[in-house]
Design a protein around this nucleic acid. Structure first.
Lengths: 236, 236
DNA sequence: TAGTGGTCTAGACCACTAC
DNA sequence: TAGTGGTCTAGACCACTAT
């Protein structure tokens, strides 16, 4: 871990634990170079990370002000997996795997994000996710067989991301995603015990590795009343 | 505009116009310092911007690969105003202002994002937005009177952001937002001509200035079938 | 081995804010 | 005026990738 990451970790921890409360100023860049024994550009890199994550807002001639940043987010938000999300929020996590099979990638759900998608060989993982003990999310994930030839059932039941990153050593880099609202299908109603006429929030994402290989396609169908997406953005 | 911004503008333009197609490599950092007559750190700042915006993925020992980045986004996505959005996508823009009045900020819609919100004096702007000639969005914006004492009707009909930034010289910095799904209210059905039992996508946002003053609160209610939110994110 | 990006430094000059 | 952040430089050393 580089020096600037250490400085970032220390400052973000001190913001989280209230050492630097919302509205207060962080030490000046000059002070940070002395405190942490780093050059100014290195201190500035740490501050840039804090800015990007919504911890601070820098004000010219004044300093770095601690601001309210989003505390938690749904899995869809920043490529955070369902398991990481439940661990963060403390909601009980449970997944029923209802499909784990070799198939071809369906192109229809991903048409908007990838118009020229080919029906490549893939492994389909279908899961029902529970929030507070109730079925709340139906996930259909397609992983390209060319990148991941096999998925053990335990990985599907636990966490696919954990398996990809720690088990296979894949480096996940970025993702394009969409959120839409659709009427619940008969399958949605069956799996999530919904009444007729209800709607679901649908998130579609396409995820790539650090070498720019696209390898994973997911459609998540959320019970509308359990769905919240939260984000922090900067004007550009 | 700094040098690194000029380099960013030039490179992003060349990615957009196909000079550097998706999958190709940008010139190396060394080459960029020679081409643009800047130091390496300055060239790297430009590349960092391209990375943040989803234009490129850097690969160690190899170079900067051009990737597919999200082309357009709904207003909610990156603090882009409705007018900027319609201008980018070419969909006809039109707004009916149905409310422009002094009132107190309602705290209920913003409870999740700002639990301790006070009912401060504010100007309420209520608008119906049209996409493809049909009423598709109901916006309720509340602007704190302490920051914006008055909003001319023309500004409400045209673009509030344009008025805030160019008319008043406010510097918009960041925003927290949420997306939820709710049953359409009687008011939604009336304004957007929806049938009974339909749902709406609701986005709630709280926007702050560069001096960290929070000044604007918006609830946008979207016709579900016209709503798409698109985003690009990096794993962290 | 040569070329690439990742990190870090010490110093400089500038623009802005507070007093 | 003093202190703050914003930008830029020239150089260094390292880790990784290609060949």
């Amino acid at each position: 871990m580089g020096k600037y990451e250490r400085v970032f970790e220390d400052l973000s921890a001190k913001i989280d634990d209230g050492t630097y409360p919302v509205g207060s100023l962080l030490p000046s860049e000059k002070k940070l170079t002395e405190t942490y024994g780093v050059s100014r550009e290195t201190a500035r890199k740490a501050l840039a990370l804090l800015t990007d994550r919504g911890y601070i807002q820098k004000i010219m001639g004044k300093g770095s002000v601690v601001i309210n940043h989003s505390q938690y987010a749904l899995p869809v938000s920043n490529i955070v997996s369902y398991k990481e999300f439940s661990a963060n929020t403390g909601t009980g996590s449970r997944s029923d795997v209802f499909a784990l099979e070799e198939t071809n990638l369906p192109t229809a759900p991903f048409k908007d994000l990838a118009p020229d998608l080919e029906p490549l060989p893939a492994i389909h993982v279908g899961r029902v996710r529970y929030l507070d003990g109730e079925p709340a999310i139906v996930d259909n994930t397609y992983v390209l067989s060319s990148v991941v030839p096999n998925i053990p059932r335990e990985a599907a039941e636990d966490s696919l991301y954990e398996y990809f990153e720690n088990g296979l050593g894949l480096h996940i880099a970025y993702s394009s995603k969409q959120i839409k609202v659709e009427p619940a299908t008969a399958r949605d109603r069956e799996l999530m015990k919904l009444a007729k006429g209800e709607y679901v929030a649908v998130t579609v994402s396409i995820t790539s590795l650090e070498d720019t290989t696209t390898f994973e396609y997911t459609e998540s169908r959320h019970r509308a009343d359990k769905f919240i997406y939260q984000d922090f953005a900067r004007r550009r």
